[in-house]
Amino acid sequence: MPISFSPAAIWPIIMLFASNIFMTFAWYGHLKHKGTAIWIAIVVSWAIAFFEYCLAVPANRMGSEVYSTAQLKTMQEVITLLVFSGFSVFWLGENLTWNHAIGFALIAIGASFIFRG
Rank of each mutant, 00 (worst) to 15 (best):
19 S>L: 04
97 T>L: 01
55 L>W: 05
41 A>S: 15
96 L>Y: 03
6 S>K: 13
2 P>H: 12
84 F>Q: 07
34 K>C: 06
52 E>N: 12
64 S>F: 06
93 G>A: 13
115 F>E: 00
43 V>G: 04
42 I>A: 09
87 F>D: 09
37 A>K: 12
11 W>K: 03
26 A>I: 03
82 L>C: 15
71 Q>A: 06
68 S>M: 05
59 A>R: 01
35 G>W: 02
65 E>R: 13
66 V>S: 04
45 S>K: 04
82 L>E: 08
95 N>P: 00
107 I>W: 01
94 E>S: 07
13 I>H: 02
73 K>E: 12
93 G>R: 14
53 Y>H: 13
113 F>L: 09
100 H>K: 05
117 G>A: 11
110 G>A: 14
39 W>Y: 07
8 A>S: 14
102 I>S: 04
9 A>E: 09
22 F>H: 12
84 F>L: 15
101 A>N: 02
99 N>T: 13
42 I>L: 12
3 I>M: 13
67 Y>F: 14
104 F>A: 13
14 I>G: 03
22 F>A: 14
40 I>M: 09
69 T>W: 10
66 V>Y: 09
77 E>D: 04
97 T>R: 02
115 F>W: 00
16 L>T: 12
34 K>R: 15
9 A>C: 10
110 G>H: 02
6 S>R: 12
100 H>N: 11
75 M>H: 00
15 M>S: 07
7 P>V: 12
4 S>F: 03
37 A>Y: 10
57 V>P: 01
63 G>D: 02
104 F>R: 08
110 G>T: 03
74 T>A: 14
99 N>C: 02
44 V>S: 09
17 F>A: 11
114 I>F: 06
45 S>I: 07
9 A>R: 08
14 I>H: 06
69 T>E: 12
6 S>Y: 11
86 G>A: 04
87 F>E: 07
63 G>Y: 00
49 A>E: 07
69 T>H: 08
36 T>I: 15
76 Q>G: 03
18 A>C: 14
7 P>H: 13
57 V>S: 03
52 E>W: 03
81 L>W: 04
46 W>C: 15
49 A>F: 15
25 F>N: 12
22 F>G: 10
92 L>N: 06
27 W>Q: 13
23 M>F: 12
29 G>M: 02
47 A>T: 08
89 V>L: 02
84 F>E: 07
55 L>E: 00
1 M>E: 06
63 G>M: 01
115 F>Y: 02
88 S>Y: 08
69 T>C: 06
68 S>A: 03
115 F>A: 00
44 V>L: 13
6 S>C: 07
90 F>G: 04
115 F>P: 00
46 W>F: 13
1 M>K: 10
38 I>V: 11
38 I>C: 02
7 P>R: 11
41 A>E: 13
3 I>C: 02
51 F>T: 01
12 P>C: 05
50 F>S: 06
47 A>P: 00
23 M>K: 08
103 G>E: 05
46 W>K: 08
34 K>D: 14
25 F>G: 07
55 L>R: 01
10 I>L: 15
112 S>E: 01
22 F>R: 09
50 F>I: 15
107 I>N: 03
